[in-house]
Amino acid sequence: MTARLAALLLTVLAGVALWRSALGEPGPAERVHEIAASLRCPDCQGVSAAESSSQMALSVRAEIERRLRAGQSADAILDHFRQRYGDWIRLSPGVDGLSALLWILPVAALAAALLPAVRRRRGRGASAVLPAVPRPGRRGLPAIRRRPARRAPNPPDAEHPPSAGRSRADAVPAVVLLLLGSVAVTGGAVAVWASGRIQNAPVAEETRGGGGDAAGRARALAAAGDHDAAVRAYREALRQHPDDRAARYLMAFELVRSGRAAEAVALLEPLLATRPHDPDLLLVVGTAELTTDPARGRRTLRRFLAAAPPGHAAAPRIRALLRSSRDLPG
């Protein structure tokens, strides 16, 4: 009794404490933190503006503080950011439109799951009074449908020889499984095919480069050592995306590897006129020219050294190469 009394009394006190903390007004620093926590840090990955110490996150916090001091409400500040960054900046979507689903679905699902429980609880009270007579049809709970009724009394032990009826019953799951398996495999194949098609669709310049397209096939061929086929694939890739410089360079590279350095030079020469300071271009052209016209190749590689940013990984080796061949003409 004392325990229950103490529990009751303390619960009341705890309720008061909770009530008081719910009413408390947050301080200015807490308000900044609260608003920043609901905004994405613009230049990080998946961290809120409250946690990151990146420059943009610092800017966001400073801006929130400035606007709070100017007397703006939290909603106005959130709107300010949303106008500039779109819905993306808010870490928690609003309760309007499609986003409402996000808030309603979990609650609805939980209610749907717990409602039967509550109902069943009431049912239990009733059934405790009733005699426990098994009613055919609505009995027990396992809720796994068991198809062949006659199978049930048969323990699956070895001493019961399998009857003809049982083996037919056994065949039902097998057939269903076979059907399901073929549907599943077809589904998987369709998914692979559909996603492959989507991946092959022309995409923004940064996102290109997944496998599957001509360039990807070319890379795969190159990796497999079939340089001629890779060149053909790159040519096809260039027909699809004529401005894909990476593919052009890689194709030239494959040409060099399959002993067609002259073609590589011819392929890249026009580019060199418009981009005379592209170090990677100079590097590929230079290495190709080393076979066709060594003197000119060394000149191009020297231009590469001049154009390469400090720390370019190929620079030391090219430098060494040029030094070792200094005694040659050119």
Partner: peptide
Amino acid sequence: PDGRLALELGARGV
């Protein structure tokens, strides 16, 4: 200095 202009533009970073 305080990132106000970058935020005004809607910049994600530099």
